[in-house]
Nucleic acid binder design. Structure first.
Lengths: 225, 225
DNA sequence: TAGATTGTTAATCGATTAACAATC
DNA sequence: TAGATTGTTAATCGATTAACAATC
């Protein structure tokens, strides 16, 4: 893993998980080597793109041979920090938050959940996915005793910005934002990663409407012809 | 809404929901007009980009004045199909699927849920968010009687591809995919929109690790200085 | 009218693809 | 050695930004 100097584009990083998924499939299938052309075929990408992407991080292949499946998989896992452990807290124990906890999402990706915070008295003191739910007012005490790197934000839209700011003030370095709000953190060293359900659904809506409309337009032309 | 001829980039479309969010805030704040410079300031975008994006769909502004907040908001809602109604079914009534249903996510965005399908006997016959859960084996019968445009895919990874194919065969035109798998549909007219939680979490992991490492490297340099 | 701001064209920048020498 | 495939440089393509005439 050399050349950490050049700026690596967001596009490249977001392709790595897809490469990883393909490599896992290949590993399960018992394949030992794969060429950039073959990998590109699986993913609908050009071999050039794959080679360019990988060469941002190092030289993982061998001329005339290709890439070792296990080796490359391991390399990408390293790049994505899969073998690191990050302590994370959930803020907001609503439906989405609970679903994430109960699915063991965090554990699977190395994000160890250490606490849940909520405002509702009936939730406080219970356990979600095996993790205690604390009063959100205890967050400062709890986080200073048991620091966490990541806050998973599942609060209502209006509480998003203030919860995020509080978490950052308490030492959190990354926010996984599930609220339908854009979080704005002064400190540029804090990472914010968004899951915007509504944005995604609106994009779907756009493409549905577009296809409907072009289909209708085509029908019109047919009829008039 | 003219000029539907030129190809509109995915980047542009994915920015529209953000514009919409800013416009809603402005409307709530009682503002009547906004310039591309002001909107850009809110969103951390250039005014050029905003004007370019909007002009893909029509001319919504007025020289020397800017954009009418209500008018532009309405225009973007139209583009995103917010005023259309799409019938949608949920496949897989696990934690995530249930969370989506109970949050009224679909209703809020014009995606009316008409049925839920699952394999587990104890779920079949119950209601989730007010919608009946059917045996997945009844999907053909049910969908031919009550067609749906959208399938929300919340099944286990291994069932993803086959469930998606079945839904498409039964007339579904769009798939909102929550599984950690890449869905591949032959029919290019079918829309697939992914929410890949793990991909998102891995991206977060990358950036966390990167910052940790550069911080460590800086510390090293300090120490040796 | 003068100032402001759009719509749109031109310039720049970055990302993707193509090409190919190096080499297993 | 010959064939295959990488790593990397060069060419192309597309997206973003800058500039400015049109005009409210």
């Amino acid at each position: 893993m050399k050349k950490t100097l050049q700026k690596i584009s967001d596009n490249t990083i977001r392709r790595l998980p897809r490469y990883l998924r393909a490599l896992c499939e290949l590993e399960v299938a018992g394949l030992e080597r794969v060429s950039s052309v073959a990998l590109g075929g699986m993913l609908g990408a050009t071999s050039s793109q794959i080679r360019q992407d990988l060469n941002c991080f190092g030289e993982f292949g061998t001329q005339g041979y290709g890439y070792g499946v296990g080796l490359l998989k391991h390399a990408i896992e390293d790049i994505l920090g899969k073998n690191r452990r990050y302590r994370s807290v959930l803020i907001g124990a609503g439906n989405i938050g609970r679903a994430l906890m109960e699915n063991r999402f965090f554990e699977e990706n190395g994000f160890e959940p250490t606490a849940v915070f909520d405002v509702l008295p009936e939730r406080i003191g219970t356990r979600i996915g095996g993790v205690r739910v604390f009063d959100v007012r205890d967050m400062p005490r709890r986080l200073s005793q048991f620091p966490a790197e990541v806050a998973v934000l599942c609060v209502p839209k209006d509480a998003a910005q203030s919860s995020a700011e509080q978490a950052v003030k308490l030492g959190v370095r990354a926010i996984w934002n599930f609220t339908n709000a854009d979080i704005c953190i002064e400190n540029a060293r804090v990472v914010v990663e968004n899951i915007h359900f509504s944005d995604s659904l609106m994009t779907l809506g756009y493409r549905l409407r577009e296809r409907q409309d072009t289909a209708n337009a085509a029908q019109q032309t047919d009829r008039s012809a």
